[in-house]
């Protein structure tokens, strides 16, 4: 953590993650960052909400639990929150891991309680993604949407509304604009 610039806004990790000093990350040991991910100020990531229900697959190691898994080139704007969803299953309450793939943008003040978010997903500002929602690749969620719990959003959809519905499709030309490598490079301690 002790890099050359002592008083910058962002701490840059070995894998190139840029994490704001003012982010509020809880349970850091249970969070995986794939690298080159930007976490802005006042972002809350709840790594402490671990899975307590034993995994059905015995090959999964106990004690090696992950609450939030994030891929590469993701961007979490100011004030958003990532929170593993929880539900009652076979009479026991448990949280389940929140998985986010690559090139996912989350706008300011959005609350994410999804189970799975695919690659190249763009989530606007003030969006609420309900518990156990599954968002596939190349999806755009417009500002102020409320994605209901358990919703599955197919690839290449544009989603909006309260509750959110599919309102359109991503055009072929738009796909290039959803790459976040440039956005990552623009963030720095300047």
């Amino acid at each position: 953590m002790s890099k050359k610039q002592p008083k910058g806004e962002y701490i840059e990790t070995d894998t190139g993650n840029k994490v704001s000093r003012r982010s509020q990350i809880i349970g850091t040991t249970n969070i995986i960052l794939g690298g080159k991910t930007v976490i802005q100020a006042e972002v809350i990531i709840r790594g402490d909400l671990l899975r307590t229900y034993p995994a059905s697959n015995p090959s999964e190691k106990q004690g090696n639990t992950v609450a939030v898994a994030i891929g590469r080139y993701c961007f979490f704007s100011r004030g958003c929150e990532l929170r593993p969803p929880g539900k009652l299953y076979k009479g026991q309450f448990s949280h389940y891991p929140l998985k986010i793939a690559d090139h996912v943008f989350v706008g300011p003040s959005s609350i994410i309680e999804a189970a799975l978010i695919g690659s190249h997903v763009n989530i606007g500002s003030n969006v609420v993604v309900g518990k156990f929602a599954i968002i596939k690749d190349y999806v755009r969620i417009l500002d102020g949407s409320v994605v209901p719990p358990n919703m599955v959003i197919p690839s290449f959809s544009v989603v909006a509304g309260r509750p959110a519905r599919v309102v359109g499709e991503i055009a072929e030309g738009e796909v290039d604009g959803m790459d976040l490598r440039e956005v990552y490079r623009a963030v720095g301690n300047g």
Partner: peptide, 14 residues
């Protein structure tokens, strides 16, 4: 009852 179950789990986590 579900809220009570959730609290039982949160007690261990927080």
């Amino acid at each position: 009852k579900m809220v009570a179950r959730q609290i039982e789990v949160l007690k261990k986590l927080i």
